[in-house]
Simulated scan of single mutants.
Amino acid sequence: MSAIDRRQFLRLAGLGGAVFASGLARTPAARAAAMANEDFFFVQLSDTHWGYEGPANPDARGTLPKAIDAVNALADKPDFIVFTGDLTHTTDDPRERRKRMAEFRDHIARLDVKTVRLMPGEHDASLDAGKAFREFFGPTSYSFDHKGVHFIVLDNVSDPGARLGDDQLGWLEKELAGQPADARIVVFTHRPLFDLYPQWDWATRDGARAVGLLSARQNVTVFYGHIHHEHHQMTGPVAHHSARSLIFPLPEAGSQPKRTPLPWDPAQPYRGLGFREVKAAPAAPAYALSEFPMKA
């Protein structure tokens, strides 16, 4: 008998014997409808800043491998993994930038999951308009569907002015227009789309236009990175959730004069670092978030 994981068993147990009688006879449309009624979860990691060296994380070269080990050790395998930007630390040297991206790519190849989704942060893309990122990882904005949810990846970092731009906003409008009014939509981006704290570059200059488009929908959630700590906010009906970093934590907006990393604590070496599980259930309009702190 083939192995079956806990989530699969619970789904089959809930369906009862009918699954064995009808599964093979389903049409493609019926199979798609059935998948839309499945629960699933994905893992969000963010701001790995591969290539960083400094006192804010003396274990900068060890933290990403440890995070990969932690994700691989999860009891259930996620449907996919997403990195919400700043995969690498900024550098003015194009050769060094590509070297860091190659090393990051080699590290994440160890992730024990079929699908890994990537997007750039400003450290990856603002100095060359995303050219090196596209060479290694493909488009900086795109969409995909998974088990009844429409996912949209927005690029608010390749423009050094922190803008989405008219073309991308037009594309977003078309993406939304192609979805039913009650469609479940998740947006991934790096910077916050709303003005969290523009003084620290925690904003998107034309993000209000994107939020306006998203706010016309019934069920939209945004997951982002950039600010290196958890933050949860509503803009009208749209929920926004930032993720912890995997390199160093940053302070809450305006809590200190400058946007400098929180100091490394040898007694708690990975304090403030971590990743997130996001669980989607068809009957629940919101997503269940579980935070996993990094451990030594």
Rank of each mutant, 00 (worst) to 15 (best):
S2C: 01
A3H: 12
R7I: 08
L15A: 12
G16A: 04
V19S: 01
A21L: 07
R26K: 05
T27V: 03
A30C: 06
A32D: 15
M35H: 15
M35A: 15
E38D: 15
V43R: 01
S46P: 14
T48H: 04
E53T: 05
G54A: 00
P55K: 07
A60Q: 08
G62Y: 00
A67N: 07
A73N: 12
L74C: 11
A75G: 05
D79I: 00
D79M: 00
I81R: 03
V82A: 08
V82D: 05
L87R: 02
H89W: 07
D93C: 02
P94I: 04
R95F: 09
E96K: 10
E96W: 01
R97C: 09
F104L: 12
R105Q: 13
H123V: 01
A125I: 03
A125H: 02
F136M: 04
P139L: 01
T140V: 00
S141L: 01
F144W: 15
K147R: 15
K147C: 13
K147M: 13
V149F: 14
V153K: 04
S158T: 08
D159V: 01
D159K: 06
R163M: 11
R163Y: 09
L164E: 12
L164P: 15
L169V: 13
G170C: 11
K174C: 07
L176Y: 13
P192T: 01
W200A: 13
T204D: 04
G207L: 01
A210N: 04
L214C: 03
R217W: 12
Q218R: 13
Y224R: 02
H226M: 04
H228W: 08
H231L: 06
Q233E: 15
A239F: 04
H240P: 12
A243R: 05
R244H: 14
L246H: 13
E252M: 07
Q256S: 07
W264A: 02
P269K: 10
G272D: 13
G274F: 06
G274W: 02
G274V: 04
K279N: 00
A281I: 05
A284W: 06
Y287R: 12
L289W: 10
E291P: 03
F292A: 03
K295G: 03
A296T: 12
